[in-house]
Nucleic acid binder design. Structure first.
Lengths: 206, 206
DNA sequence: TATTATACATTCAACAATGTATGTAAATGG
DNA sequence: CCATTTACATACATTGTTGAATGTATAATA
C-alpha cells in the first residue's frame, strides 16, 4: 500500500487506540482481536503490528496517551504541597483527581480498562508490572504527602502515614472503580465525589 | 471410561474447581484453557464438560462454593441488626466481613478471582450479571442497615444512607481488592483491617 | 440380574487468532 | 531525482481452543 504522511500515520495511530478503547470497554480485552481493532479503525492487522508489538502494547499505549500526563501531574502535586496551607492543598489535590476522571472521558476510559478489563495475575506480564509501578508511584507520593502533614501536626489520628495512605488509596480506588463500572453508573462521583472524599478526610485532619 | 461412585464424582468436581482456582490466580482466566484445568486435576476435558457448561460456569461454581454461603450470611446479618445495639452490631458485622476474607483462604481466592481476573464489560455475560446481582444484594443490605441506623439517630453525618452505603462499599471494595492483590500483599488487612474500618466508621457515627 | 444412567475419555471438525514474512507505492532526505 | 525508508496491506504457516459427537465400563436401580 501507499506510504502515508507522518501526519496521516499519527492519525491512524490514534484511530487504532480509539477503536481499541471502545472495543475493550464494549466486549473486553480477551474477546477483542487485533483484527477487530484494525477493521474498527478502517485498517488491517498490518497497521496494528506496525504501530504496536502486540495487544498488551496497545493497552499500555492507550494508558500512556490518556492517563500518563495526568498521572505524572498528580504525582508532582502531591510531592510539592503548598507550605502555606498543606492540608487544604492536599484535600484539593485528592478531589481534583476524582474531578478530572469524571470530567475527562478519555481519562475515564483508560482507567476503566485498566480497572475492569486487565487481568492481574501471579505470573505478571510486562503490562502488569508497568501498571503496578504506576500505582506504586502514586502511593509513594500519597504517603510522602501524609508524612509532611504529620510533621506539621495536621493529622488527627494515631495511625501511621503509611497506613493512612493505604486507606486513602483503597478508598479512592473503590470510588473510581465503582463510578466507572459498566452499565448504569450506580455512583455519581461528579455530584457526590467531594462530599464522600471530605467524609473520609475529615477523619484524618484536626 | 469406568463410571465413578457418586462420592468419587464429587471429589473430581472439587478437584476441578481447586485446579481452576489455582490456575486462574497464577496465569489468569484468559490464558487458562479448559484442558489446563483438567490435566491439573488429573482429568481430561471430558470431565470438565461433564461438570460444567463452559469456563464461565466454572467461575460461577467456584464462587458459589467458596463465597456463596458467607455472602448470604452477611446479607442476612446486615438486614437483622441487633435492636439493642445496632451501631456496635453494624461495626462488628463490617469488620467480620474483612476478617473472614483474610482468614479463610478459599474465600479470599474466590474473591481474588472475581476482583482481579474477571473482565467487566458493557456487553455483559451471564457471569457478569450474576456477580453484579450478588454485589447489589450486599449493597442493598448495607443501605438498609444504614437507614435503620439513621432512624435511630445514630448517624453523625448529613449525607444520605444511600450515599453512605456507596462510600462504605467502595472503601470495603478497595481494602479487599488491595489486600488480595497478586504479589507481595502491600496492605496487611489482618493486622490493620479493624483500625482502617474504624477510621471510616468513626466519621459515620456520633 | 438386566437395564439404564452416569462419569468420564477420546476423537474430530472447525475456525479463530497470532506472529511473521513479504509485497508495494509513495513520502522523505540528500 | 534517486535511494531509501516508511506505512501499511496481503498472504501464509502454525498453533491453540472450543464444542460436540461418540465410545465405554461401571455404578445404581428396580
Amino acid at each position: 500500500m501507499a506510504r502515508k504522511t507522518k501526519d496521516e500515520a499519527e492519525r491512524t495511530y490514534h484511530a487504532l487506540l480509539n477503536a481499541a478503547t471502545a472495543l475493550f470497554i464494549k466486549q473486553g480485552i480477551a474477546k477483542t482481536t487485533l483484527n477487530d481493532i484494525a477493521t474498527a479503525a478502517g485498517m488491517t492487522r498490518g497497521a496494528v503490528y506496525w504501530h504496536f508489538d502486540n495487544k498488551d502494547a496497545v493497552i499500555r499505549a492507550l494508558w500512556d496517551r490518556n492517563a500518563g500526563t495526568l498521572h505524572a501531574r498528580f504525582n508532582q502535586e502531591l510531592l510539592n504541597l503548598d507550605p502555606e496551607n498543606p492540608e487544604q492543598h492536599f484535600r484539593q489535590a485528592i478531589k481534583s483527581i476524582v474531578q478530572n476522571i469524571v470530567s475527562e472521558p478519555e481519562l475515564g476510559e483508560a482507567i476503566h480498562i485498566v480497572m475492569h478489563c486487565v487481568e492481574f495475575t501471579d505470573e505478571q506480564t510486562e503490562l502488569q508490572r508497568y501498571l503496578r509501578d504506576k500505582r506504586s508511584e502514586l502511593h509513594n507520593a500519597l504517603e510522602k504527602a501524609l508524612t509532611v502533614l504529620q510533621k506539621r501536626k495536621a493529622l488527627h489520628t494515631s495511625l501511621s502515614p503509611a497506613l493512612l495512605a493505604q486507606g486513602m488509596i483503597c478508598y479512592l480506588y473503590g470510588l473510581i472503580h465503582n463510578h466507572l463500572e459498566p452499565g448504569k453508573a450506580v455512583l455519581d462521583l461528579r455530584k457526590n465525589g467531594d462530599a464522600l472524599l471530605d467524609l473520609f478526610m475529615d477523619s484524618l485532619f484536626v
